[in-house]
């Protein structure tokens, strides 16, 4: 029992369970799932389907955060990738040609790799702080996305393309399979190769990692590339779901939701240990919260207030000073450096 309590998934799962439980009482419809022409419908399915892009972006973000970094540009990459794919398809003569779809997907993912590599190079080689380095693409990326779409919303009418985001495979939304596939890729990359070990090592102690012979720059570059790819695929799902690309609004606020998902999932913003499954649950929590608020009839924008409290609460719990402030409030006088040294000695 004590072990269960300490498991890193314990708290995220509890929150998720509490949310579901609330829905069970408040809106019993929440759990009903119906079948329509081979598709399953229902709130739970919606959460998975609409949450898919967020989960993807958050998976990529987890690895970046584990290296003590952050990627603010994911929302822009989501928009660019969707825009490029839709543009390629809309230029084609037969929008349903499989070859065209494949090319457009490859183009979009290829561009995402480049954008991720750009971020990675700025952080690793140029040595610019991650927040600042990725800010550049966050600002310029929106412009690039609008440049691609020509400032309009590009709509495509390709049933094959829209299959990615709204098709069904074995009665479940296809996007879920994409997410599961990427999650498996990420898990294999980090747990079956030693990349995961190196990421944690670099995030926890860069100097010591260098001294142990780890190529920190390569590790950092690869996580930003992976994060770019995840965002790119998320962009495909998102644009395919609505069969259109909106350079201005696609993927707006995704970077923030993704960071929130990572933090809720138990990965610290200070780098080091990371938890991919925790992140997935974190993203599901966010999506469930949004859906719940929708269902109980409160304006969905109020989710933001709830999110802000969740961010603060999680960060305060992770903050040493906050815990110290609670536990040692009365005991110690303020000697700068003393607490520091006590922490070093013990």
């Amino acid at each position: 029992m004590g072990k269960l309590y300490k498991h890193h998934l314990f708290w995220p799962l509890c929150i998720l369970a509490a949310l579901l439980l609330f829905n069970l009482f408040y809106s019993p419809d929440f759990f009903s799932i119906t079948m329509h022409d081979g598709h399953l419908y229902g709130s739970l399915i919606d959460i998975l389907n609409f949450g898919a892009p967020l989960i993807l972006v958050a998976i990529g973000m987890t690895l970046v955060v584990a290296t003590k970094g952050i990627d603010l540009s994911v929302g822009s990459i989501v928009a660019i990738s969707g825009a490029l794919a839709c543009l390629t398809i809309s230029k084609g003569t037969d929008q349903n040609a499989l070859g065209l779809i494949v090319i457009s997907i490859l183009l979009a993912v290829g561009l995402s790799v480049l954008l991720g590599a750009w971020n990675g190079l700025l952080v690793s080689v140029a040595g610019i702080q991650p927040i600042i380095a990725t800010l550049i693409l966050m600002v310029a990326g929106r412009g690039i996305a609008q440049l691609v779409t020509g400032g309009q919303i590009i709509t495509v009418s390709s049933s094959k393309y829209s299959y990615i985001g709204s098709g069904a495979l074995a009665t479940l939304p296809f996007s879920i399979f994409v997410v599961v596939l990427m999650l498996i890729v990420a898990l294999l990359l980090t747990r079956k190769t030693s990349l995961g070990l190196f990421i944690e090592s670099v995030g926890c102690n860069p100097t010591a990692s260098l001294m142990a012979g780890i190529r920190a720059n390569w590790v950092i570059l690869s996580v930003y590339v992976f994060c770019g790819v995840c965002a790119g695929i998320a962009g495909l799902i998102l644009s395919s779901n609505v069969s259109s690309a909106d350079g201005n609004n696609a993927g707006l606020w995704y970077e923030l939701d993704a960071i929130l998902a990572v933090v809720i999932g138990g990965t610290s913003l200070n780098g080091g240990r990371f938890y991919l499954t925790g992140t997935v649950i974190g993203a599901l929590i966010i999506q469930t919260l949004t859906t719940t608020i929708y269902m109980i009839g409160v304006p969905p924008e109020i989710t933001l207030v709830v999110k802000s409290f969740v961010v603060l609460a999680v960060c305060l719990i992770q903050s040493d000073s906050f815990r110290a402030a609670i536990f040692y409030r009365w005991k110690t006088r303020h000697y700068p450096g003393e607490k520091e040294s006590i922490r070093h000695v013990s």
Partner: peptide
């Protein structure tokens, strides 16, 4: 600062340099 990776286990710390040498 230059030795241990504090948040990793003893096992991971032991194999770190060998793993780095062998590659990803």
């Amino acid at each position: 600062t230059e030795g241990i990776i504090g948040d990793l286990t003893v096992r991971e710390n032991i194999i770190l340099a060998l793993q780095a040498k062998q590659g990803v």
